[in-house]
């Protein structure tokens, strides 16, 4: 009788798929960049209007390492600019997370807060954060503060909405089970409702970190004289589209890395969820 567990014939195919899954992330970007380079070199547009990827890479390299001063006054200053933006993102995001979770849990859990606090917050929510720029400038001047304020506004509402939703959708049988085991109202919140709402809160945090990068860059274009957004807008005035694109790439990369970091924290915190979800099975 042959063993049903013998899987050796399938092995080579298995190895091929493994190899493919190692590089699959690179296929789409590589094709896009190759097409772009070919188009830029074809001469259909003047190189000043659409720099080739190689030119952008050159500008980015000089911006980061400062080898030939192609990027003039920015040469070698990438780290300083990126750090300036990242600190604003971090500051605004941290504040938004703190207040968003606090207010969201309060509104989700308590009728009193729902009735008193929520209508005001929901009225403020549709106002685009960028429309606060004039007020932010006259209140906070031209520095880090207006940018942090804008990031806070953009990141606060996704965290708030998802925290409210997370608390409101906690299985009421879990609350009953908690009451049966003698939880007081503080324990009910910290030991049952909060952990149960965490998946939803994390979803809000991930949306918020994206908004945070968007608003940092917007604020830097208008109200701040440093950071990646400022470099982007300044280079536009000097017609340096290679630097504009290098700035865009930097922002995309840093935004992606922040989300990756948040995802890693989420995976650690919500390990209990992994075997039951689509995400868990894929990872």
């Amino acid at each position: 009788m042959t063993s049903v567990t013998d899987v050796s014939p399938a092995r080579p195919a298995f190895r091929l798929t493994r190899a493919f899954w190692g590089i699959e992330r690179l296929v789409v970007p590589a094709l896009l960049i190759a097409g772009w380079e070919a188009f830029a070199r074809s001469g259909m547009l003047p190189p000043a209007l659409l720099p080739a990827p190689s030119a952008v890479l050159h500008a980015l390299g000089d911006w980061v390492f400062g080898f030939d001063e192609t990027t003039q006054s920015y040469s070698g200053h990438w780290l300083r600019d990126a750090l300036a933006s990242a600190l604003r993102v971090f500051g605004g995001f941290a504040l938004a997370s703190l207040f968003g979770i606090l207010a969201g849990v309060a509104i989700g859990w308590s009728r009193l807060f729902e009735k008193t606090l929520e209508p005001t917050l929901q009225m403020l929510r549709p106002i685009p954060p960028v429309s606060w720029i004039p007020l932010a400038i006259i209140w906070f001047g031209i520095a880090d503060k207006p940018a942090i304020f804008l990031v806070f506004l953009g990141a606060f509402f996704p965290v708030l909405m998802n925290s409210i939703h997370g608390v409101k959708t906690v299985d009421h049988n879990l609350v009953r089970a908690g009451a049966m085991m003698g939880a007081n109202s503080r324990q009910m919140l910290t030991d049952i409702v909060l952990p149960a709402a965490l998946p939803s809160i994390f979803a809000g945090l991930r949306i918020a970190v994206g908004s945070a990068w968007m608003l940092t860059v917007t604020a830097e274009m208008v109200a701040v004289k440093s950071g990646l957004g400022y470099v982007l807008w300044d280079s536009y005035y000097f017609l340096r589209y290679d630097i504009v694109l290098a700035a865009m790439i930097s922002i995309g990369l840093l935004g992606y890395l922040s989300d990756l970091g948040l995802k890693a924290i989420m995976a650690r915190t919500l390990r209990w969820q992994q075997t039951t979800t689509v995400q868990g099975r894929a990872g």
């Binding site: 049988n173 879990l174 009953r176 089970a177 049966m180 085991m181 952990p195 209990w272 969820q273």
Partner: peptide, 20 residues
Amino acid sequence: ERPGSDRGVVFQQPTLMPWL
């Protein structure tokens, strides 16, 4: 008057804390 640990309840669904 209210739920309490003098009465243990076993629910129809296990109703465990999934994170524990």
